[in-house]
Design a protein around this nucleic acid. Structure first.
Lengths: 337, 337
DNA sequence: CTGAAAGCGCTTACAG
DNA sequence: CTGAAAGCGCTTACAG
């Protein structure tokens, strides 16, 4: 069934039917009624392929999620979808591999579906730097700052990673910890782990404790399995740590398991702090002390900025949203030990 | 950039370029080389809209995932995607709300994108019963059995829920537990929880222990938060339980937290068994004893059946894939207590 | 093996 | 306000 059938059945021409379907203003009320009646009767749905082919005009909004298993992102995504739905926007969600080039993917999607805007959930600065220039629609990056890139159509909202990590380590120091190990991702300059580690350095310096990256940092991907293994390696190198700061909650959860397997009690024998504030961190045993990223605000600011960027021509904005240290059970104070 | 540009630049006609792009056999090696060189140089990607519009023939495969936060599904999905990719199939993934009508969604998608097959990750029998009849392409349902529905184009692969639940409770009984509480979902007849509970009944009966649903069953959704609350309610009703069987690992994880908060040690004071075998169950403290659904086989059988259904006309198949009781740390034997 | 041409289902100036 | 017509970018008989 095509628009042609509707035309025939309604007694109007193709053009008029199409105009009704697209809510064009210059259609008589009579035509609109007649056509819609037929459309409803037949349960007609226009063919999106033909539509997109013709209307080189932008339609939906694309959300690109980097990493399928990222619990922080699924939290944010859920909120984003609700917000776009409330704004009556159709959204297309794609999940990419953690290592995939999200910018190339977006570029390709642009050619194919021509979305009117992109929302990136996580991103690799390197890919943005290399390929984003070709991007022509408004975009928003979440959880990473794209400020330094200076693209005119790219806004970003993120947690101040260095500051948040610093607060976490400051807290550990305030509890008397001096030998702190850190578990996190790839340390190349553009990566999130790198920025978080900067905060660790700052805190260590200000609190006058030593921090030797080679010995006290152990890299791993953001998963429980990797956190588990990395914690093992870290402890092998540095058996006398009194605390571990994991740059992601899933890493922390895996690490806690590794500690338990070595007979270490948390927090009695060793303290653990995570990062992100995912739901599971609230239910682990012990409950995980962590730095919570504000997913609600991230989602809210991101969606609003994108919508505005689509409707008006606006300069990009780059904002840090607040974070919060959530003190729970996985840290022990050495002072009152 | 379009196929036209490629034609011009390569010196061949539109038709030949298209044939090269689609790997048609009757193209000279020379033409193929020349065209592909230009395509590569320009980084050309054909427009899918035009493509789909023309080839009224079905293209991608659609995977509909019910529930965004279901960890079991994300496990399966990952495997499914790898398998379809290996088979050179393009897949379109959509995440639906836990309560959404996946069948209506599929019907709509059929009109729009005309996929050549659907793979449902989770599904509500009620929706299938009502609307699936209109579905015309081969479909596969995973984790639920659709056998009783008898649709000619719907296969299904699932764990024998009743048998698996029975094994879990049998195990608890073999450890000497007699007062067992159960936490799970909605008990309406079509639901998965209902089938799992049947296994509980069978086990209770065969092992000669009492089981009073009103007192010993507490319903909740499949999330940690709900598992946490439900465990609280259950314990309030029945404080003397020696074991809890949660019909989902996330429920079990939430329940373990609730028990810990009441000062109950697991498994010393109370044992816990989960269901699903998600990754987190391996890293919890204590590690969760659970019934593992075989995600690898579910994915494998599902993908193969769908591909076969697409390529040949085959009668639907309904299979139970094996499950496995994974004994870990959350259960204590009362015998050697 | 290749080219010229029709047509997929729609939208949108253009003319009236 | 409406219709006739061009055209979006592709694929695929058809003819050679």
């Amino acid at each position: 069934m095509t628009i042609k059938d509707i035309a025939r059945l309604s007694g109007y021409s193709l053009g008029t039917v199409s105009r009704v379907l697209n809510n064009h203003p210059d259609v008589s009320e009579k035509a609109r009624k007649r056509v819609m009646a037929v459309v409803r009767d037949l349960g007609f749905e226009p063919n999106t392929n033909a539509r997109h082919l013709k209307m080189r005009n932008k339609t939906s909004i694309a959300v690109l999620v980097k990493g399928t298993h990222n619990l922080l992102f699924s939290d944010i995504l859920e909120k984003i979808q609700a917000k776009f739905a409330a704004a009556g926007e159709e959204v297309y969600v794609a999940y990419l591999d953690e290592d995939a080039d999200e910018v190339q993917y977006a570029l390709q999607l642009s050619r194919q579906r021509n979305p009117k805007g992109f929302l990136f959930l996580g991103g690799d600065m390197e890919f943005f730097r290399e390929g984003f220039e070709q991007m022509e629609v408004p975009c928003v990056l979440l959880t990473n700052s794209a400020e330094e890139l200076g693209f005119p159509n790219l806004s970003s909202f993120s947690t101040d990673d260095a500051a948040a990590a610093q607060v976490a380590v400051d807290y550990l120091c305030s509890c008397g910890h001096q030998k702190i190990g850190v578990l996190g991702g790839n340390l190349s300059v553009d990566q999130i782990s790198y920025r978080r580690l900067r905060g660790v350095y700052r805190s260590a310096k200000e609190n006058g404790i030593p921090f030797d990256t080679t010995k006290q940092y152990e890299p791993c991907r953001y998963s429980m399995a990797e956190g588990y293994r990395a914690a093992g390696r870290l402890l092998q190198k540095e058996p006398h740590l009194t605390a571990i700061f994991a740059l992601g909650d899933v890493i922390a959860l895996g690490a806690m398991r590794a500690l338990a397997d070595r007979g270490l009690r948390i927090p009695e024998d060793i303290s653990v702090v995570g990062y992100d504030g995912i739901v599971s961190s609230e239910y682990s045993i012990p409950r995980l002390t962590t730095v919570r990223q504000d997913t609600e605000q991230l989602a809210d600011r991101g969606v609003r900025a994108l919508l505005q960027g689509i409707h008006y021509e606006l300069p990009p904005v780059h904002e840090a949203v607040p974070f919060e240290l959530v003190r729970r059970e996985s840290v022990r104070s050495l002072q009152d030990g």
